[in-house]
Design a protein around this nucleic acid. Structure first.
Length: 691
RNA sequence: GCGGCGGUGGCGGAAUGGCAGACGCGAUCGGCUCAAAACCGAUUGCCCGCAAGGGCGUGUGGGUUCGACUCCCACCCGCCGCACCA
């Protein structure tokens, strides 16, 4: 509520009558962002449009900064693209078309003022408030009224389809094309949207596919004003939406490249007072009023004399009243609490009435991360010095479904609060990782589908370690993955096997009996080759897991696979290796496993070492063990593997080539052929190219 | 239509331009057991071969390279986003 009042004070919150999206099932208004394909984001019901007076936040003031600052954050490109699309910035011009008969001016937004000379008709959206007024007295009234009724009755889904046949009717009026004084007919057609631009367009059929389709249907003139790539100036190959020199326009502009002509034409319009350069956005202000009970009350009081009065800070918070009926019914359930609604005007002390709508829950999620940094603060929303040390968030993780909801709103809040002096940073989340969705049998889990996997059931049956480790092992975290009960069994078996090996080894190990006892001496009679293989595998696993977890890779699936490999080697060598070597390798495995399966890993580690794994540093691989002196060299002939030989890690190219040449199967393939070339990759591979 | 991501065994998936298929699941055979489960061992891309070995193989077709799952071009398919945005 304090943030809302801050935004109100700054002019970033306002109340206005507007055409808003209404969900008939939830009986509340929604923000544009909460309408997905014409349906309510919460319940899937098709939304309606209503004229209502509602509270908005002026997110459009931040459109450019929300767009530009995307370059400064380490977010996935697809999320940035979605935000850019949603903001939908277009550069162009606003151009005035005048209806001389009625003395009315109609500005339109266009990204293509270079094609103005090709504007041969004019189209208004069915919702445009002046449509009936323009048709009045022309004899087209009833036809126009019928068309509007039909257009508005259609569902959003249908109307949005791009492939749909163009329809419309003439209004019986003309407007004047400002660049050449030509009168052009005015139509109403539902392919023009009221919510974008000014709800009216200039139609240039030669250079716009939609206008072209409409002109063809209604036999309207088509005038080419940009030459085609092969110099076409006639009606062939239209519509043409590319660039080229202007033709059929005006002697001052003909022959100019259209992008250059665009600048000149806009300058000319400005001088003539007929238009100006303009930027248009698809983004609309954020409608935050909701007719729901469970939400943060909007802290304002309406007074006959004083108007809209903010609740003073010392009276905050405004607490939800008790009501008997929470159900949605088209007006806020709060309105039924008459004792609560009826109050005193904070300004004049006279009778006042509280705002009964509550705020969108996305308002709360737009700043929770700020509060989390200073959750115990009971005198302010946060202490800026605390935020200075914690924020911004280094790594945010969430589903891509928030790309243009939470993630846009939170960025807007951060910028607005920074402008008001409450924050010292512009972006809330430096880096973002969008994890994939876990599906079941290929489908999104949902109660109605009955394919939900219950975490509690898994935890009860297999334990939290298995549940956690399996989810991390299931696949690359940025991709969707399908839940598999068998896969989880596999992880459970792995954890059990590691623990059994550890327990068994600990029983035989002197270290378990004497914690901290000196290590390194052979615990049994065995050792040698097996011990060194174990030590090398452990070093490899430490290196691999550490790498998989570092950076922003989150490669948990391959990290767990590496621990499995180490465990497999421990299991395979348990007869040959010394107890000490075995214990060391298993302790390394337990240590690496700790982030993924903390309970089982901690217990195994304790048994093996007598120590608490979380009190020990993350393991570090001995560099000497990572690189053995002898390496396997792959021998290729014409790029195909024919043999392998062992060689010293730092053997010279000639030595390697010589060794490989003598490998039996290589000799067989070299025999009787002409050696063209030898490629040697040190410590790795030799390739003989023969003819 | 535009943009993004993806396509590798029976399945989930691994692979800084250098051994394709790590790891897991499943399957087959064997051990243990009165028996089963659990556990342990072996095999497991396809084709030919007793074997040694050979051929084919990462959606399709081309290209670059000594060498391509990886880079380039064109195309097909799937998923996601946007879509009559003037």
């Amino acid at each position: 509520q304090w943030i809302f009042l801050e935004l109100l004070r700054a002019g970033l919150a306002y109340r206005q009558q507007a055409a808003v999206k209404w969900c008939p099932h939830d009986a509340t208004v929604l923000a544009n962002e909460q309408v997905i394909d014409g349906r309510c984001e919460r319940c899937g019901t098709e939304v309606e449009v209503r004229q209502l007076e509602q509270w908005f936040l002026r997110i459009t003031d931040y459109a450019d900064r929300l767009l530009d600052d995307l370059d400064q954050i380490a977010w996935p490109e697809h999320v940035k693209t979605m935000q850019r699309n949603w903001i939908g910035r277009s550069e162009g011009a606003e151009v005035v078309f005048r209806c001389e008969e009625l003395g009315l001016n109609y500005p339109v937004f266009t990204t293509r003022p270079d094609t103005l000379f090709g504007a041969t008709f004019f189209v208004m959206a069915p919702e445009h408030p002046d449509v009936l007024r323009l048709a009045a007295g022309t004899g087209h009234e009833s036809e126009v009224a019928d068309y509007i009724n039909r257009a508005l009755a259609g569902s959003n889904d249908q109307r949005g389809a791009a492939e749909r046949e163009k329809t419309g009717v003439p209004l019986g009026r003309t407007v004047t094309n400002p660049v050449n004084g030509a009168p052009i007919p005015v139509y109403v057609a539902d392919y023009v949207l009221m919510e974008y631009g000014t709800g009216a367009i200039m139609a240039v059929p030669a250079h716009d596919e939609r206008d072209f389709a409409f002109a063809r249907t209604y036999d309207l003139p088509i005038r080419r004003v940009i030459a085609g790539p092969d110099g076409e100036t006639g009606e062939q190959a239209l519509p043409y939406t590319g660039d080229g020199p202007l033709v059929n326009s005006h002697p001052d502009f003909d022959g100019l490249q259209n992008r250059q002509a665009l600048q000149r034409i806009v300058a000319w319009l400005r001088d003539e007072g007929q238009g100006e350069a303009s930027v248009n956005y698809r983004l609309r202000d954020w409608l935050i009023s909701r007719q729901r009970y469970w939400g943060c009350p909007i802290p304002v009081v309406y007074c006959e004399g004083c108007g809209t009065v903010p609740v003073p800070a010392e009276h905050l918070p405004v607490v939800l009243p008790d009501v008997r009926d929470y159900a949605p019914k088209g007006r806020s359930p709060l309105a039924a609490a008459e004792d609560w609604v009826s109050t005193e005007c904070p300004s004049c002390g006279g009778p006042g009435r509280r705002e009964t709508d509550t705020m969108d829950t996305f308002v709360d999620s737009s700043w929770y991360f700020l509060r989390y940094c200073d959750a115990g603060n009971d005198t302010a929303a946060w202490d800026p010095t605390v935020l200075a040390s914690w924020m911004p968030v280094d790594q945010y993780i969430g589903g891509v479904e928030h790309a243009i909801l939470h993630l846009m709103y939170a960025r807007f809040f951060t910028k607005a609060l920074a402008d008001l002096g409450h924050l010292g940073f512009q972006e809330p989340f430096r880096a973002l990782f969008t994890q994939g969705m876990i599906t079941k049998d290929g489908a999104k889990m949902s109660k109605s589908r009955g394919n939900v996997v219950s975490p509690m059931a898994i935890v009860e049956r297999y334990g939290a370690d298995t549940a956690r480790a399996y989810i991390l092992f299931i696949g690359p975290p940025d991709q969707d993955a399908d839940w598999s009960d068998e896969g989880m069994e596999g992880v459970h078996r792995f954890l059990a096997r590691l623990w059994r090996l550890a327990a068994e080894t600990a029983q035989r190990s002197p270290a378990a009996a004497a914690p901290g006892a000196s290590r390194g001496s052979p615990g049994g009679g065995a050792g040698g080759e097996a011990d060194s293989e174990l030590a090398r595998k452990a070093a490899w696993a430490i290196d691999k897991v550490t790498g998989d977890l570092s950076g922003r890779r989150f490669a948990f699936n391959t990290a767990i696979a590496a621990i499995m490999e180490l465990t497999n080697v421990c299991s395979r060598l348990r007869e040959q290796a010394s107890v000490t070597a075995q214990a060391d390798a298993l302790a390394a495995a337990a240590s690496l496993l700790f982030p993924f399966a903390p309970h089982v890993a901690a217990d195994a580690y304790d048994r093996l070492t007598g120590q608490r794994v979380w009190e020990q540093p993350w393991p570090v691989a001995d560099p000497a063990l990572l690189h053995s002196d002898s390496v396997e060299i792959v021998c290729q002939v014409n790029g195909r593997v024919r043999d392998r030989v062992r060689a010293d890690r730092d053997a010279s190219g000639e030595e390697l080539a010589q060794l490989c040449r003598e490998a039996p199967n290589v000799r067989a393939h070299l025999d009787g052929r002409e050696l063209v070339k030898e490629v040697v990759v040190p410590a790795k591979l030799v390739n003989f190219v023969v003819r």
